[in-house]
Simulated assay, not measured.
Amino acid sequence: MPPSPARTRRSAADRREQLVGIGLQLLPTTPVQELTIDEVARRAGISRSLLFHYFPSKREYYQAVTRAAADLLRAHLTPPADLPAEQRPAWMLERYVGWVETYRESHLAFVRGAAGGDPWVAEVYEETREALVDLGIGALGGLQDPLRRQLVRSWFAFTEDLVHQWVREPAVSREELLALLTDLLEQLLRC
């Protein structure tokens, strides 16, 4: 009988990364608050109790997955350095719409969780929104005055809601949606 393969132990950091990765894999079809610890543990090939060794509570696990998803969203929307400045806002908007199309239920749960007063979701959401506003302002040439920052933040909130509605029930084509949102931002920034 051949010897069984040697089992390698994962480091704590590696195991945490694996568990968060499983949560991220499940996000396209399952909002973070609906992830089951049993399913995550099963996919990792570990016991439920071992998962709680790496994440002391379900909330801490959900928060780690939420933060990782938020980091992925920011990276997804960060324009490449070689993209001409005038193309960056449209590039970012196109990518945002695609993100919501792919992760609609999870993204909606993230936004609603923040609005619903769940403190850990609200904290991650606010950090993410401010980072996205910063990205947008950078793409628009670094508008620094407080009014323009508020306008970009408000436009983003409107965009978030409209894109969620559009993904559920497209009233216009994707190109028309993108043109509408781009035109609205340009009009707001003329104030």
Rank of each mutant, 00 (worst) to 15 (best):
R153Q: 11
S47R: 08
I46K: 04
K58S: 03
D161A: 14
Q150W: 06
W99R: 11
V97G: 04
L184A: 12
R15A: 14
S57A: 13
T29W: 00
D71G: 08
M1D: 11
L108I: 10
G138K: 09
W155D: 08
L93I: 08
G138T: 15
F52Q: 01
F156I: 08
A13D: 10
P3L: 13
Q25A: 14
R88Q: 11
Y61D: 01
T8W: 00
A12N: 06
H164E: 14
L72F: 09
Q187L: 11
I37C: 02
R168V: 13
G113L: 05
R42C: 05
L184S: 12
R48D: 05
D71W: 01
H164R: 12
R104T: 10
L51A: 10
G23I: 13
R149D: 04
D118A: 12
V124P: 01
L108D: 03
V111K: 03
V172P: 00
G142V: 05
F158N: 10
R42G: 10
V121T: 11
L24W: 12
L140V: 11
E126D: 15
L72V: 14
P28C: 06
A114T: 05
A85W: 04
L19P: 03
W91C: 07
E176M: 09
L143W: 11
Y61I: 03
A81D: 10
E160K: 03
P89V: 04
E17Q: 10
E127Y: 00
R10K: 15
R42E: 14
D134R: 07
L27D: 06
S57I: 15
A68H: 09
V152M: 06
E101P: 14
P28K: 09
A139G: 09
K58Y: 01
D38M: 04
P3Y: 09
C191Q: 12
E169G: 03
A122L: 15
A90M: 09
D118P: 02
E60A: 13
P2E: 08
P146S: 10
L180Q: 07
G117L: 05
V65E: 01
D134E: 15
E86T: 15
D161V: 05
G113M: 06
Q18P: 00
R15N: 01
I22T: 10
H76G: 06
P119F: 01
Q18M: 13
A41P: 00
Y125Q: 12
Q33A: 08
Q25N: 11
E175R: 07
L83S: 12
R88N: 09
W166H: 08
A64M: 02
I137F: 00
A69G: 12
A13Q: 14
V32W: 00
V97Q: 02
Q33V: 07
R48E: 06
D145S: 13
Y96G: 03
A12C: 07
R43A: 04
L24D: 13
L27G: 03
L83G: 13
L181C: 08
E123P: 09
P119K: 01
Q33F: 04
D145M: 06
R112T: 05
